[in-house]
């Protein structure tokens, strides 16, 4: 048997994975190893697989993913800090046949935008919310987030988050799951290939369920911030598994009754 060469393998008919065409060719501005890129790509893949490009209207937040609209080849609006669910509410109500999503970080969704998050979910807006929780403010340089863990260091809690002085981390996804307006609530991560596969399945559900008009679909993705955490990407993912996941356990918090 003749050994097959690389040139023979690398042929268009043998392609099993490449970047989704919904992702643009613009180089992501995220730090090396940042989970934002992975989360973007999963959403893009789902939009491509479900053939939703012409029906999609996305809302970008303020934070690291503020420039998300440069990376996805869909119509997008850039919201003021925390207000993405309000924009999405109006978009979906005015154009109910469209697929409408917001993509928000922890500062955007769980601090400045808490009211918009809770009320959009409580009204049961038929939108899909992707919530990236990396426990820190990345864009502004590593300050404490509403989701920063107890004793975790950040630039505005350099000796660690003292919960007696700085308050407790907010498990907003758990709150969202208790609201009658939420339909599907899940917490995922993208720090290992297995978790990426699971996260994609969850995002796909959260997109498909929007068609049912039964309420808000909410996917938290526990992610890393290796720059903010001051670790290598691989160490950050290890730290995430050992520290973030015990506090923010993965899995479905609310699933539709079939």
């Amino acid at each position: 048997m003749a050994e097959i060469t690389l040139d023979q393998i690398i042929q268009p008919e043998n392609l099993v994975y490449t970047k989704s065409r919904i992702m643009t060719d613009t180089v992501l501005h995220y730090c090396p190893g940042c989970g934002h890129g992975t989360a973007h790509r999963l959403l893009a893949e789902v939009i491509e697989e479900l053939d939703l490009q012409a029906d999609t209207i996305g809302v970008a937040p303020v934070g690291c993913s503020v420039l998300m609209y440069n990376y996805m080849d869909v119509d997008m609006q850039e919201a003021a800090h925390g207000r993405a669910p309000a924009l999405a509410t109006a978009i979906k109500r005015l154009m109910p046949e469209k697929f409408v999503f917001t993509y928000q970080g922890d500062g955007d969704l769980a601090a400045i935008g808490t009211a918009e998050t809770i009320h959009a979910c409580n009204r049961g807006e038929n939108i899909t919310i992707l919530f990236i929780n990396n426990g820190i403010y990345g864009m502004t340089g590593g300050q404490m987030a509403p989701t920063t863990l107890p004793d975790m260091k950040a630039s505005t809690c350099p000796y660690g988050r003292d919960v007696r002085m700085m308050g407790n981390p907010l498990k907003i996804t758990d709150i969202v799951a208790t609201l009658p307006g939420s339909y599907y609530v899940t917490r995922q991560s993208v720090h290992t290939p297995g978790n990426v596969r699971k996260a994609k399945k969850a995002i796909r559900k959260a997109v498909e369920y929007q068609k049912r008009n039964q309420g808000t679909c909410f996917v938290e993705i526990v992610s890393n911030c290796n720059s903010g955490w001051k670790m290598t990407p691989a160490d950050a993912n290890q730290w995430l598994e050992e520290n973030m996941l015990p506090f923010y356990p993965l899995g479905d918090l609310k699933v539709p009754e079939e």
Binding site: V16, K19, Y30, P32
Partner: peptide, 9 residues
């Protein structure tokens, strides 16, 4: 995260 790898099989 940057989608730079294509895979053939």
């Amino acid at each position: 995260p940057d989608g730079v790898i294509s895979v053939y099989r």
